[in-house]
Design a protein around this nucleic acid. Structure first.
Lengths: 206, 206, 206, 206
DNA sequence: TATGAATGAGTATTCATTCAT
DNA sequence: CATGAATGAATACTCATTCAT
């Protein structure tokens, strides 16, 4: 009765994954559906068995990409470590993820810009940024409580600055991967920032 | 030399200016040459009297945009002020420019991504980023010399971090203009950073 | 011979029947094989177990439709009634069939047009029309023999006119089912044809 | 200032005229836009300078075709002739038009079927048919007044029957142009209708 | 020089048909 | 046999670019 048995969800992912790669390399407008098909090792028509059109493939690919990030992030962060250590871990893990997935982050940037052009601001975008910010802010707040950071620190504002630096650093690195050493940049930023936000700068955060 | 030449340059600029606007609004791939023509109040065919193709219009528009920035920047920065004041002025002036030209900065972002996809890394891009970095680094170095900043400060690394933050902040603001107060973000970053890099944090940099 | 064969014919018919319905609703070019499959409650692939391609399904469906008509027609016409009564019965029965099968007759029209486009004129088409014409002409001839109709009547020509009116009437009704009362139209045509429209037929309208 | 000067209306017509031809030959669904372009001696893209899409080209072509008919019809009908003569003239002129434009009438048929499939009945269709019917009915009414036709004649019903015959005759002729002599068919119909087919009309066929 | 009409290469998408299960 | 997943040929439509005026 039943023909070819296929895990449709898996195939959808396979396609979305291929799209992530190609969108990252060429950008949305310049990738042809055939490129995606080739990358996914399926026929052009097959894409349309799984996605209504190029736009929904874009959206789904983005979501898949984001889930890769969170999947990669969470298991590597020790929930019981001191908050500042956790923060450093997050930075490092995400930085490493970027280093592996350069083109993909380019796709991320493009998609953000694309979303930002929508006539009404994307709630998704706001939530995502807000989510990151809260996550960081929580850790900072905990560090303040512990007495590691200055009591007058504004956790949300600091988190926002931190994220801005992070995305900007990635952005610059995407632009000039050869010229920029992301890991060193992180060290420098960390050093500069810590001495600024520690209650007692002379201790260096220990 | 002849009056016609002045005319031509003016018209070229008029077209490039229109392109800046439209590219900013719709993105490069999605703006049609006709959109640019309409915005520039010329016929579609006229564009090709002044630009070989869409690509060279893009490049030229970008250059024009950059010159707007430098033109706006320079006169407002007092060359004889203390270096840290100059740095703050630069930040403020550019921030204000962004606030006026949101869409245009989106165009900037897009163009950067576009350049970064070129098969060989764009020397222009490297120079531009390097140029900004040097400019900032010089000011920081001067401030170190003056004794305002910590003597062990690495000016180039700090400048890089500063620029990363700046571009990231703009990026976030472009994404969510309603949710983000650029000026406040700058204050926070400045405050956080200064206390970290000053020789004597208790003075607050004065 | 084997029970399977009966099954096959039944299924072929089931599919052709479904095709009649869908072709009637959407037209040949606009129905997708999947529509037919769904209407026939079989899988898309199954269609190709029974029909080589869409074209042969079309042909077969048409034949099935025509057989429906003849099946419906014959038993309701009393072979021993006076010829003019038989003619009227034929008209009525076919008209009723149309009223039940409006969309299907649309399919008929389309198929006719389709056939007429074939590079060489379809012998089938000619035979069918000729067959109808002869059938009517026979009845008219009998009525002439009986003395009910004028002896100088040209039976074939009159049959042709009759059929033209019939198909034209159906055509108009298909176009505007709400506005046209087929049964009344038939009555009027019958009356007009039988008695003529001239006040004084003997003059011939001069 | 102004470039190529083109009579856009004329070009629109040129294209619509080409479309009439090709739609007539191949049918709407099977004609590719390129076929139309070739027939109109323009590039594929040019079609879209004048028509939004294939559908509106279809609609416009149909309107143009209809205007051809009316243009051809009116000047050849003597408004001061006796009504029955006018009616005969109309029949003849339209028949001749058909003989010249066979494929085009096929396009007409197809378009009618297409319209009839629209979810809500096309007012255009109703008006057109009604218009023809009224035109004929007026002539019949005049002939009744003059005493040429039977006083108990129902002009509208008779007009409807007349039109049904006409379209049916054309339809059959389109199907089998070789086998059917339209002019003779018209003669026969005219004769039959005028005088009736009963030997003794006064009995009504009972 | 300025223009917009003309063009066709390029692309997303559809759908008849095939084929692995 | 039956199925629906897979496929790619076919096609409407867009838009950068050319060109006649």
């Amino acid at each position: 009765m039943s023909p070819k048995i296929v895990d449709r969800d898996e195939k959808r992912q396979q396609i979305a994954q291929a799209a992530i790669v190609v969108f990252g390399q060429k950008g949305f407008e310049r990738t042809r559906m055939e490129d995606v098909a080739k990358e996914a090792n399926v026929g052009k028509g097959t894409l349309y068995e799984y996605y209504k059109d190029k736009g929904s493939l874009l959206n789904d690919s983005f979501e898949l990409m984001m889930s890769h990030f969170t999947e990669e992030l969470e298991p590597q962060v020790a929930g019981d470590a001191p908050p500042l250590v956790q923060l450093r871990q997050i930075t490092d893990v995400m930085l490493e993820a970027m280093l592996h997935l350069g083109d993909v982050y380019r796709f991320f940037l493009e998609y953000m810009i694309y979303l930002s052009r929508a006539p009404s601001p994307s709630p998704f975008l706001a939530e995502m940024l807000q989510g990151f910010r809260m996550r960081i802010a929580e850790l900072l707040k905990a560090a303040v409580h512990q007495g590691t950071l200055r009591p007058d620190l504004d956790p949300l504002a600091t988190a926002a600055a931190f994220l801005a630096w992070f995305d900007g650093a990635i952005f610059h690195w995407i632009l000039l991967p050869e010229t920029i050493d992301l890991r060193e940049m992180a060290d420098q930023f960390w050093e500069m920032t810590l001495r600024g936000i520690l209650r007692d700068p002379s201790t260096g955060g220990e």
